[in-house]
Computed example of a mutant assay.
Amino acid sequence: MNDAFTPELLGRIIDNQADYEQPLLFVGARVHLFDSLVDVMEDADILLGEGFIVGTGPGIVTAAGDDNALVIDCAGMVIVPVVVDARAALGLNPDRSSDAGTLWPGNTGSFAVVDAELATDAATAVATVLARPESVAAIVIDGKVVLWNGERTSNAPAQLDKGRVGEVSPSASPYVGMWIDETDFLHQELTADGRYDETRGGRPRAFQGAYWIEGDGIDYLDDLGFWAFGEFVDGVLHHGPYILNRR
C-alpha cells in the first residue's frame, strides 16, 4: 500500500466530491494513456474536472495553487485507464475519435493508480488491477474515487447480486406475455416466473431459460448456458435479427 494514500486524504476527497469545490490532481505518475498518438508520459499529472479529465501531462502541478486543486501524490506509481481500448493502444482504430477510455483531456476520468513495483509496463498494470485489486492504490470512475488502498469507498456502487440472475424485476411486468416476430417464425413467451420459452419455425421449446429486465434491456440466460440480449424500443422487442410485437 502507498503511504501517501491515507484514510485522512480519502476523507478529504469524499467530502470534497459532494460539491466538487476542489479539482482532484494526481501528480508525478507514469501515465499510460492508451491513446493512438501518445503512449506514455513520465512524471505526469492528471487534473480532473467533475467527471472528466481537464489536463494530462507533466507540469500541471505548478498551477495547483492557482486552481485550488486537491493534490494526490503519485510518485512511484503508474496510472492506466480502467476502460482498456486495445485497438487504440495498438494503433488499429480508423481515426482518433474512435479511441475509447483513453486518458486524454476531455475524456471520462476513469483510471487506476498502481504501485510501479507491480506495474513494470502497461500490460502488467492492467493485469494487477484485474487480478490483485486489493493491491491497487486507487481506482477512479467518472471522476470519483471508488477504491482506495484496495478497499471500496462510499462512492463505489453497490455490488450486483449475482444470485438474482433470472429474477423478474417489477419493470418486467408490462412485458410478460407472448412476443411474435414479423414473419411469424419466432414466438417468444416471457412468463411471470422469470422464464422464457421460444418456438422457432413451429419447433416448440427450441430455447428455454431465465430472463431479467433492467430499463429497456432484457438479458437471457438459456438453459444450454449461453447468454443473449434484447431491447424494448417503443413497445417493440428487438432481439438479434428479429423484431417482435406482443400478441
Rank of each mutant, 00 (worst) to 15 (best):
M1Y: 06
N2I: 03
N2L: 02
D3H: 12
A4N: 14
P7H: 10
E8A: 11
L10T: 01
G11R: 15
R12Q: 14
R12V: 00
I13S: 00
I14D: 12
I14L: 15
I14C: 05
Q17S: 12
A18V: 15
Y20S: 14
Y20A: 13
E21C: 02
Q22S: 10
Q22Y: 10
P23V: 04
P23R: 13
L24N: 00
L25Q: 01
A29I: 03
R30G: 02
H32A: 06
L33M: 06
L37H: 13
L37Q: 15
D39L: 10
E42Y: 11
D43T: 04
A44G: 09
D45N: 02
L47Q: 14
G49Y: 02
I53P: 09
V54Q: 15
G55H: 13
G55C: 07
G57T: 05
G57V: 00
G65C: 11
A69Q: 10
L70F: 06
D73M: 00
G76T: 07
M77I: 04
P81F: 03
V84R: 15
D85S: 14
A88S: 15
A89E: 11
L92H: 15
S97N: 12
A100T: 08
A100N: 07
A100M: 14
T108W: 04
A112L: 00
V113E: 03
A116G: 05
T120D: 12
A122C: 06
V126W: 02
T128A: 09
V129N: 07
R132S: 04
V136E: 05
V136I: 05
A137P: 05
I139L: 06
I141K: 09
D142M: 02
K144F: 07
L147Y: 12
W148G: 02
G150V: 00
T153H: 06
T153V: 03
A158N: 10
D161A: 13
G163C: 02
G163M: 06
E167W: 08
S173Y: 10
Y175S: 03
Y175G: 01
G177C: 11
M178A: 10
M178R: 14
M178S: 12
I180S: 08
T183G: 07
D184W: 08
L186V: 09
H187N: 09
E189R: 15
T191H: 08
A192Q: 11
D193H: 00
G194N: 09
R195V: 02
G202E: 01
R203A: 08
A206M: 10
Q208Y: 04
G209S: 01
G217R: 14
I218M: 11
I218D: 04
D219T: 08
L221S: 12
W227G: 10
D234W: 06
V236Q: 11
H238S: 07
H239P: 05
I243A: 08
I243F: 09
R246C: 06
